[in-house]
Amino acid sequence: MNLPLSLTINGVRREITLDDPRVTLLDLLRERLDLTGTKKGCDRGQCGACTILVDGRRINSCLALAVSHDGAEIVTIEGVGHGGELHPVQAAFIAHDGFQCGFCTPGQIMSGIGLIGEGQAGDDPERVRECMSGNLCRCGAYQGITEAVLEAQSNMTASKQRRSA
């Protein structure tokens, strides 16, 4: 069974033919397109390490069949920086020590970017914690992660206001 699909991944249009409908977006990215920044933790939607943006929304790529997302626009951790410049959420994770081993970090950063886009957390750390609860960090870097998301959100809001001024 050959299943053709077309995806835009980090701004580049990719025509892909799958030979197996079971391939998830996560496995497609990692095993077939060499985009290994997206991590496979639990593979069951419980840890958030595989978080990516699909059509602008953060989802668990391990619980998404690739074939069902024909036509989607996907952003992974490889696609968030511009040239040598880090995304504000990436920079804030470094500034606030938002990681230790780093395995969950791509998922945390993609989830933070998704959260800021959703605009639901405001400047309340308690809401950031609640809205980031789908991303586990076994090193326990949660305090730095929360601070990083709050600062990135504040920086991104400020620069947006400057641009529109």
Partner: peptide
């Protein structure tokens, strides 16, 4: 219910 990622999907 669930997590933000799951609710988005």
């Amino acid at each position: 219910g669930a997590s933000a990622q799951l609710r988005n999907a």
